[in-house]
Design a protein around this nucleic acid. Structure first.
Lengths: 141, 141
DNA sequence: TCGCATACATAAGCAGATGATATAAGTGTC
DNA sequence: GACACTTATATCATCTGCTTATGTATGCGA
């Protein structure tokens, strides 16, 4: 496999996911942040900023928005008074689940039209892709 | 394969691509638009807006930015005086190529750490993913 | 040729990002 | 234990890219 083919192909996947992931009422960064909180549990604000590749002030804003909508909450860290731990709320989990279901349905519709061999190839690649993502992002995802 | 697993996995791919795709000096929509122009040749402004899932005024703005940077250009349509055809320039192609190479290198670094079986699974899935994207976006990509 | 539809441009406003800087809490040194 | 230094988060001013609403020019059918 050519490196450029991999890059081009995965960029097209990115474009597809962006277009299938509506409504756009929330930013992608906010949903991705919720995803991290769900996967990895409460995290420091600064750590979240690094994970999402945004600045700390941007993450402060984002967490404030999530808090206002009650999708996440700030907690003090008992071990360090300067730290804010951000955690996902049940509402946040529900919102994530709703979005993922809507997206999964749209994907399933497109998958249904594919030949069986293609479905099998994609299914077989999912665990490998997951490991690729983990490697690419330094294992902190 | 579970539908939700597919959705979750591809969302992680999307997150990875977003984080690997720096510098962020140009918006994702603008690079994606250039990609469409490269793949499919000159297109109407309105058609581009639909492809990218943005409004027509947003695409007018985006094309103006691309034109200012000489990555794309406006042309009149000889058959319809109202129409603007947008085309990629050589500079636009070069910029796309540069970005893809940088991205390909980062991906290759992560791929290098994967077991051979994973690499093979991903390589085998690429054509299938390409067809999935084409189906999901209505074949107009 | 009049009226409506279509294609694009312009204008005003907002969300979400940035960099610079302030505040508050912890840490180390003497 | 007081000082300077570092770290974690918040605030401020600003920018970019999107939105909706509206304007303008061209095309087309009755």
């Amino acid at each position: 496999m050519n490196e450029l083919e991999l890059a081009t192909g995965l960029m097209r996947v990115r474009t597809m996911m962006r277009l299938l992931d509506f409504p756009r009422d929330r930013s992608f960064t906010s949903m991705s942040t919720l995803g991290h909180l769900e996967r990895g549990g409460p995290r420091r604000l600064t750590e979240l900023a690094e994970l999402e590749g945004v600045t700390q002030p941007a993450m402060t804003q984002l967490v404030s928005r999530l808090e206002r909508e009650e999708l996440a909450e700030r907690r003090p860290d008992p071990e360090d008074g300067r730290v804010v731990l951000v955690a996902i709320t049940q509402q946040g989990r529900d919102e994530l689940a709703r979005r993922r279901e809507a997206l999964a349905k749209r994907l399933a519709d497109a998958m249904a039209e594919l030949p069986e061999a293609d479905k099998a190839a994609i299914a077989a690649a999912l665990p490998a892709l997951d490991r690729l993502v983990t490697r690419a992002l330094g294992g902190n995802i």
